[in-house]
Each structure stands twice: as C-alpha cells, then as structure tokens.
C-alpha cells in the first residue's frame, strides 16, 4: 500500500524495494516541472538526506530520502520527459526505487487518509 511523507513524497511497495515519487499536490504546487536531477544507482541515503532535485522554471526543490536505503533504479524517462511528473505523478512520473535497510521504517509514514488530512491543513 502507498505511504506518504509530510514533504509530499509517496512511497509504494510491499517488499524491501519501494518506489518513490512526489504527490499530485506537490506537482501542482511546483508548476511545470522542467528538470529532475536523480541520484546515482548504488547511492546510499539516510532518511532526510537530499536525494533528488525537482525544478520548475522559477523554483528548485529538494526531494529528501523518505527512509534509509540504497538506490536500485531510477526513472530514466524523466530525463527526456520531465513533464511526466505533472501529467502522471504517481505512475509514469516516479523518481527512483530504493532498497530499504529496514522495512519496518515504513510503519512510521502516513497513510492516504492521514496525508490527505495533512494537505487539507496546509491551505
């Protein structure tokens, strides 16, 4: 099932390898995404590390590692077509797959209902 962070990342997957992207709310707030800087495969990150950068015309935002782990795959399609983040944030616009050090870390994240409540509180 899909989990969420307060920084508007979604994390999807059941095993120790999960897929990460940014939420529809985030892509909407960023505006037209023009570039995504992705981590290198094999890189290891701790929760809260800057792992990617997503850029619109007038802004650059860091994406933080939602959990501890190692990058096992990145979405190469974003290089040629960064607009996927806008048009398909939760499917074609995924960022990377990360192999978790500890799958139980997932339990600390929000579920959909909690995230929706979090977003509702922002406006």
């Amino acid at each position: 099932m899909t989990k969420f962070t307060e920084d508007h990342e979604w994390i999807d997957g059941d095993g120790d390898v999960v897929t990460v992207g940014i939420t529809d709310y985030a892509q909407n707030a960023l505006g037209d995404v023009v570039f995504v800087e992705l981590p290198e495969v094999g890189g290891t990150f701790s929760k809260g590390d800057e792992v990617a950068v997503v850029e619109s015309v007038k802004a650059a935002s860091e994406v933080y590692a939602p959990l501890d782990g190692e990058i096992v795959e990145i979405n190469d399609a974003l290089e040629g077509e960064p607009g996927l983040v806008n048009s398909s944030p939760t499917e074609g616009g995924w960022f990377f797959k990360i192999k978790l050090n500890n799958t139980s870390d997932l339990d600390g994240l929000m579920d959909k209902a909690a995230y929706d409540a979090h977003v509702a509180g922002l406006d």
Partner: peptide, 12 residues
C-alpha cells in the same frame, strides 16, 4: 535554466 542561479537557488 535559471534554477542554477543565485536569485532562485540562493546559497545552492
């Protein structure tokens, strides 16, 4: 490509 520049990226 102005996201490289100081008026957007500031200290980065």
């Amino acid at each position: 490509l102005s996201t490289r520049e100081q008026h957007i990226r500031r200290e980065k």
